[in-house]
């Protein structure tokens, strides 16, 4: 108990670091993922090609490699002076967006073709059809896999700790270096991760139930 109480400020910093890193990357990943999925199902060949390229490049590329690129190459090329936190959000968000895209695309494919045909036949445009007809119906199928992706994202965010971002993993490293009891540190860190992941799965279960009722 002492380990937690004595270093509560550090733990709290790490917890909120992970929380904000996960939250920001999740928002980026969801927005990008849906956008790229829209590209991949669009009737415009260059957009489709871009979407395919995006997914091919980012999906399951070692995340550490993406962090290396974000930390060492992006600042060289773009010299925009982004903080290590912002770079981490970009790396995590881009990486996860490729998975979100594929989950959304598979959801789109579960909506019967007739729905889109009916929408086309009353004169709706591609973006209207996607936004008003296809995505709302795809959402139900997409919720569960996206929930898993968000939990994976939470745990993946630990890599940012190795790239000078304050979050749970870097907190653990800091405390371990002080020579405190490793097992105890790990238990508290794991508990902190569990709080976040349980919250996410609870949120997605809620969404699933609500969408199941709405039809």
């Amino acid at each position: 108990m002492n380990v937690l109480v004595d270093n509560f400020a550090l733990f709290r910093q790490g917890f909120f670091g992970t929380l904000s890193l996960t939250g920001a990357s999740a928002v980026l990943a969801l927005l990008l993922g849906v956008l790229i999925a829209a590209f991949r199902v669009s009737p415009v060949p260059p957009l489709r090609a871009f979407g395919t390229l995006w997914v091919t490049l980012l999906r399951n590329t070692p995340l550490t490699l993406l962090f290396l690129v974000a930390t060492f190459i992006v600042p060289e090329v773009l010299t925009t002076g982004l903080s290590s936190y912002q770079l981490a959000v970009l790396a995590l968000g881009f990486y996860t967006s490729a998975f979100v895209c594929e989950a959304v695309r598979s959801g789109v494919n579960t909506v019967p073709l007739g729905q889109a045909e009916a929408a086309r036949s009353i004169g709706m445009t591609f973006t209207q059809i996607l936004r008003l007809i296809i995505l709302p119906q795809a959402a139900r199928t997409v919720i569960a896999p996206v929930g898993s992706l968000m939990i994976a994202l939470t745990k993946n965010s630990a890599i940012a700790g190795a790239f000078s971002v304050t979050e749970l993993f870097s907190t653990q490293k800091l405390l371990s270096d002080q020579g405190l009891n490793l097992t105890v540190i790990f238990i508290w860190i794991a508990l902190a991760y569990l709080i976040i992941t349980f919250a996410i799965s609870g949120l997605f279960r809620l969404l699933e139930n609500r969408l199941a009722v709405a039809r």
Partner: peptide, 24 residues
Amino acid sequence: EGRELARLRADVGMVFQSFNLFAH
């Protein structure tokens, strides 16, 4: 395919074999 076609489709009503009502 595009906005102009969408406009034209709005003027041509279509009824399908499988109804295709928007399920949601």
